[in-house]
Design a protein around this nucleic acid. Sequence first.
DNA 1: TTTGAAAGTGCGCGGAC
DNA 2: GTCCGCGCACTTTCAAA
Lengths: 159, 159
Amino acid sequence: MTEESGKAVRIDALDRKILRVLQRDSGLSLDAIAAEVGSSKTPVWNRIRKMRGASVIGPPTVIVDPVAMGLEACFFVLIRTSEHEAEWQRKFLQTLKDRPEVQEAHRLAGEIDYILKVRVANARAYDDFYQAMIAEVRVFNVTALLSMEEIKAETAIPV
Amino acid sequence: MTEESGKAVRIDALDRKILRVLQRDSGLSLDAIAAEVGSSKTPVWNRIRKMRGASVIGPPTVIVDPVAMGLEACFFVLIRTSEHEAEWQRKFLQTLKDRPEVQEAHRLAGEIDYILKVRVANARAYDDFYQAMIAEVRVFNVTALLSMEEIKAETAIPV
DNA sequence: TTTGAAAGTGCGCGGAC
DNA sequence: GTCCGCGCACTTTCAAA
């Protein structure tokens, strides 16, 4: 039988060290990781499997430079709505999930209901997105904040 | 001699296919990737090396579930400042880069000068961060938006 | 540019401690 | 639980087309 999945797991200090290394570079060999965290191959490998099974970590991935791919504009979109019915929300969430230019979407506490992070080629492409969105769902107020400079973009979390 | 690094590169349709696969799972074997994009081992490998050399893609990494690590609170912080001297900005940017709880930081166009995405254990931990930040640099106005629900969190960009 | 094959490396899994 | 060592699969290279 394989690993229990989705189970909560205890993460100890060694697990955290391993996660720090993996977040920096998941392409390192088990030996290299083991040396860095002061352990050895098998325990490191078992712990990585354990954390994968518990979905503490996802599959390895690579971060692609958006600018190199021509996505030079980044907007943060603040949304207020007057509609709070379940059906409206379901449709709105589906719209967000279907649109690949929406990199992040959060439902907020307070005056502003939602915030989105949207990555597009240029201002024109953002407007296309905006028009498509308001055509699908009714929103009360939308404010777009244009990023002039990406000061920091960290996928790693402090563990 | 090894690859030219930092050079701008032409990204064609096959490169894009490879990037899509790598963003989903960079742990696949070259054979598996090649099969999926309809090519074969060596060309795929050469293109990956080319894109790594040009920094189109970074090192492989792993996304860690913040909640599993006890980071259950996420804030978007909108900052307005009255200070725009170079020295103030240098210090402010350094503060942001030094703080691991700051996952993203952008300088904005318009009324709001900066937006941060901050991940912490709880509201108390956010206040610690907030107090530490305003102790270091003078800011005019700070609004914190608390995320109630992470609807979407995508590291992959549409290529 | 792609194909195919050859060699070296590292993974993933046995076992013993 | 951690350490050792083997077999196999994989990456990475280098010919040739």
